[in-house]
């Protein structure tokens, strides 16, 4: 668990953080979000002590970060930044093995680890291991950046707008890959972004910040359903109900009843999709419901406008 306890940070006379308090629970993704200059990146850098607070405490597992030797602390925390920051003179494999190298791991271990991680992030180990960063696309470099952060198997991962420099299409792929990776690895992640859609997609919890203050600390559904003040309402936008539907899965709201589904219906929705997608598809057909199909294209049931409305209104999911 990572705790921020009344943290204050000045840049010159500007108060960048004005008594920030929030907690980051173990094993889930906490997104720090807010407009630029709200202090989200500053908060992140306080955790691995790239910045030091002027007042208050940042604690990791109850222990103030100040009490760690700074290099040791950093080697125990994975760090992913926006432009990947791969070292240009090292191969992909050596980049991934960098923290293990700093920790004194031998060459064979580092190589095996690098190949495993490349496999994990979906890049062919044998064609990528010996490439140089200049030979990678933006998305590939970002994946390698994530692999590098995971190399020493740290329990905590700090991600500073990790997908911010990637084009929208690739960004969504990377987000989905990250979500499925996180399901396997269960790291404690602090994820900074200014993109609300991204936050809603990846977050277990969202900390909304403005002008160095925490405005709301909540699950995404809660933030979208009940923004706590005018700023939060404005930030989540007028389509917050739609965004909120993006948090719910069709499989949780569909009905098993296939009797009313006509088999020649062309429009259907996969069970793994979100209610937001289901709604969008229903709005495109004259009927009030569409079939739900599984990955093998078999009809599992149907999802109705009524069910979506209930979910959106805040009705309990099953």
């Amino acid at each position: 668990m990572i705790e921020f306890d009344r943290v204050v940070k000045y840049y010159g006379t500007h108060r960048a953080l004005d008594g920030v308090t929030f907690t980051v629970p173990d094993g889930c993704v906490t997104v720090l979000i807010g407009p630029s200059g709200c202090g989200k990146s500053t908060s992140l850098k306080l955790v691995n002590r790239l910045l030091e607070p002027d007042d208050g405490y940042v604690r990791v597992d109850g222990r103030p970060v100040k009490s760690f030797a700074v290099e040791e602390l950093r080697r125990g925390i994975g760090y992913v930044i926006q432009s990947a920051g791969l070292l240009p003179h090292m191969t992909v494999q050596d980049n991934i093995g960098l923290v293990p190298r700093l920790l004194g791991r031998d060459k064979t271990w580092r190589r095996t680890r690098a190949l495993d991680l490349l496999e994990l992030i979906g890049l062919d180990p044998h064609s990528y291991a010996r490439k140089y960063p200049s030979q990678l696309s933006g998305g590939e470099a970002q994946r390698v950046g994530v692999a590098r952060a995971l190399a020493a198997n740290p329990p905590v991962l700090l991600m500073d707008e990790p997908f911010g420099a990637v084009d929208p299409l690739n960004r969504e792929t990377l987000q989905n890959e990250f979500i499925s990776l996180q399901r396997k690895l269960k790291k404690t992640v602090i994820f900074v972004t200014h993109d609300l859609d991204e936050a809603v997609r990846v977050a277990d919890r969202i900390v909304l910040m403005q002008d160095g203050l925490v405005i709301q600390e909540a699950a995404p559904e809660e933030l979208l359903g009940h923004p706590s003040n005018a700023f939060a309402r404005e930030f989540v936008g007028t389509d917050r109900a739609l965004k909120r539907l993006g948090r719910f899965s069709v499989s949780d709201y569909m009905s098993q009843d296939t009797s009313r589904v006509e088999s020649e219906d062309h429009t259907s929705v996969p069970a793994s999709a979100t209610l937001r997608e289901a709604l969008s598809r229903i709005l495109a057909v004259p009927s009030d419901q569409i079939p739900v199909r599984d990955a093998q294209n078999r009809i599992l049931g149907s999802i109705s406008l009524e069910a979506i409305r209930r979910a959106g209104y805040g009705g309990a999911s099953t």
């Binding site: 290099e71 080697r75 791969l86 070292l87």
Partner: peptide, 12 residues
């Protein structure tokens, strides 16, 4: 590139 230096520092 400052990102490279920040990455180096951040990795300890």
């Amino acid at each position: 590139d400052p990102a490279v230096i920040e990455a180096g520092k951040g990795m300890g």
